[in-house]
Amino acid sequence: MRVMAMVRATRASESGEMPSEKLLAEMGQFNEELVKAGVMLAGEGLHPSSRGARIRYDGDKRTVIDGPFTETKELIAGFWLLQVGSLEEAVEWLKRCPNPFEEGTSEIEIRRVYEAEDFGEAFTPELREQEEQLRAKMCDRR
């Protein structure tokens, strides 16, 4: 299964403060371990939200809102995409991750990535076929 591990933003990450050399080295080592274990599919760090934007959808209306955004703890500062055997395996890996922000508390949230099998019985062959046809049509239009 695939999981996405998301590092929650902090005041430090939102200020654009770069991590120390020590943390960078530790994080690099952790990433290398993930790669060597064949677990890491992708991973990136994100700029502060002040360099980002949001699009709000309201019916047909689209409103663009420029960053920064205030609710720091709801923001994402970086992520990994991991291929693991179970959620517990992802938890075990992330327990070994250095604190992403040396000081104070920070959080990493682990979420499972949807795969076709996850829809199980509810996603009947007919429904799946329908979805595939839809995707094929979208593909044709491109």
């Binding site: 064949g38 677990v39 099998e117």
Partner: peptide, 23 residues
């Protein structure tokens, strides 16, 4: 669809391959 263990072999082989590429 069948048994999930069989498709899991692909994941396992890929993981082994990636490990080997690192080693």
């Amino acid at each position: 669809g069948g048994d999930w263990m069989r498709p899991a072999l692909c994941d396992e082989a890929l993981r082994l391959g990636r490990v080997l590429a690192g080693l």
